[in-house]
Amino acid sequence: MTKVSTIEPVAELTDAPVKTGARLGLWLTLPAQLLVLFIALFPILMQVYISLTDWSPLDGIPWWRAHELWTGLLNYADLMADSRFWGALWRTFFVMAVCVPVQFLLGLGLAVLFVDDFRGKRVLYSTLLVPMMVVPAVAGYMFFMLFQSGGPVNDLLSLFTSDPVRIAWLSDPDLALIAVMLADIWQWTPLMFLILLAGMISVPQDQQMAAILLGASWWRRFFTIVLPRMKSIIIIALAIRVIEIFKIFDTLFIMTGGGPGVATETISVYIYKVTQQELIWSYVAAIALAILIVLSVVSVFAIKRMQRGQGT
C-alpha cells in the first residue's frame, strides 16, 4: 500500500554524513577494488598487446617479450581478409537469428500455458526444465547418438515412409547445422520459458482484470498489457540468449566438431581450432578482441533499452 501523496522528497532522504562515510569506505576497499580491476583488466590488456605481435607459444620467448615480434595491426588486417572468420561469424549470427526467435516464441507460448493452473502442471513443469540441467557435453553426446544415420531420429521418420530413412544428418553440410540448432533449441528453450514465466506472473492481476472489464479480448490483453509490461524481462531473456549463442561451443563440438568441413564452425569453434590446432595465439587474441567489442556493443544496447523500459 503506497500513500502516493505523502512521499517525502528524495532530498530529505539523502544523507550528507553518509557522503563522508562513503569516502572512507572507498579508501578502505581500495586495495580490493584495485585487485578486482587488475584481474578484469589484465587479460584484456595482455590480449591487446599480444594481438599486435606475431607471438606464439612455440616461438620460445615469454609472452611479455612479444614486442620483439611486433607486427602492428597486421593481425587485424588479416582478420578482415579471413573468409573462414567471416564464414564462422556469419554462421554464428545465422544460428542466433534462427534459435533465439524460436526459443523466444516457444518459451513465450509455454509461459502462457503455465501462467494458469491446470492438472499435472507441476510434473510437466519439472519435466520441461530438465534439458536446461543436462550438462552440455552430455547433451551433445545425446544428440550425436540421436542423429546417427541408424539413430532414433531416422527410425522415427521411417514410421511415416515406406522405405527406411537413412539421412546422414551430421555429415551433410546443410543438415548438420539444422541438427545443431535443434539441439540448442531443445536445451535452452526451458531457460527462456522460465524467465518469461516469471515475468508474466509479475504482471499485476488487477490490470488484467481491468482490461477484461473494459471488454478486451485475450489477444488484446496479451499485446497491450502483458507484453508491454514484460518488456524489461524480455530484453533480459533475449540478451542472455544472444550472448550465450555467440559462445555456442560444447554441445556443437561434440556433435559435429565444427564439420563437416566448416559447415558448423561457429566463432567459438573457429577460435578453438586456431588456438589449439594451429597455435596462432596472437591472431586468436585479435579475433577475441573483435568479438568482445561486438558483444559489448550488443550488451550496452540491451542495457540501455532495459533502463528505458523500466522508466515506464
Binding site: S5, T6, E8, P9, E12, L13, D15, A16
Partner: peptide, 18 residues
C-alpha cells in the same frame, strides 16, 4: 504537508543528520 521538513526534524533529533 509533505516536504515541509517534518522528517528532517525527526532525523536531526535522532542524530541521523547534523
Amino acid at each position: 504537508p509533505p516536504l515541509s521538513g517534518k522528517s528532517t526534524i525527526l532525523k536531526l533529533i535522532l542524530g541521523l543528520e547534523t
